[in-house]
């Protein structure tokens, strides 16, 4: 961490610039412009022309999720949060699209907690969110379930529950 020196700079009329050089000598610069967009530049060591990408705030957050180690697939997205104060506790939150095979079954009946240790904390159905679904909750096809647990438990959920 100490090798990386982050430089932040306020540019009049433009916005805020953050820049740092990696151990290998590449440079990354991020600009939060006053127009509301975020521009990211990367400059390879010994190279003169940077390449740039312009992002909306939502896209920038998505990129941030990827960089912090989350896996994002087409419809599935996962975030790992580490609490360094709590003995480096790591919790993963992962979204799954409910397949036909388990549609019509309940959380209790699938024995999700007993089999995997993971917990379903929310279900998104037709753009409505059901937070903390009860054990008797019945899945339907098209539901997206948000599952929380340690990464092993999430993997177990994917293997044991999603294929039934």
């Amino acid at each position: 961490m100490s090798a990386m020196s982050l430089r932040s700079l306020n540019l009049p009329g433009v916005g805020t610039k953050y820049e740092f050089e990696t151990d290998k000598g590449d440079t990354v610069a991020i600009f939060f412009t006053k127009t509301g967009t975020i521009q990211m530049y990367t400059l390879q060591k010994d190279c003169h022309t940077p390449s740039a990408a312009e992002m909306t705030p939502v896209e920038a957050r998505r990129l941030g999720n990827i960089l912090t180690g989350a896996i994002i697939e087409a419809d599935q997205e996962s975030v790992e949060i580490a609490f360094s104060a709590l003995a480096d506790l790591r919790v993963t939150i992962h979204s799954f699209l409910i397949p036909k095979a388990i549609a019509g079954r309940t959380i209790e009946d699938l024995q999700i907690r007993a089999k995997t240790g993971a917990t379903v904390i929310a279900v998104c159905r037709h753009d409505r969110n059901i937070v903390n679904p009860p054990p008797a909750f019945v899945f339907e096809t098209g539901d997206a379930a948000l599952v929380i647990g340690e990464s092993d438990q999430i993997r177990m959920f994917e293997r044991e529950i999603m294929v039934e």
Partner: peptide, 27 residues
Amino acid sequence: TAMAITSLIENRKLMLREAETVIWLMV
């Protein structure tokens, strides 16, 4: 100033070392 800064942002030149010179020149 407006044109210089818009051009730096729109043409994605903010990281060029000349960009900072241009910005301060405008000030």
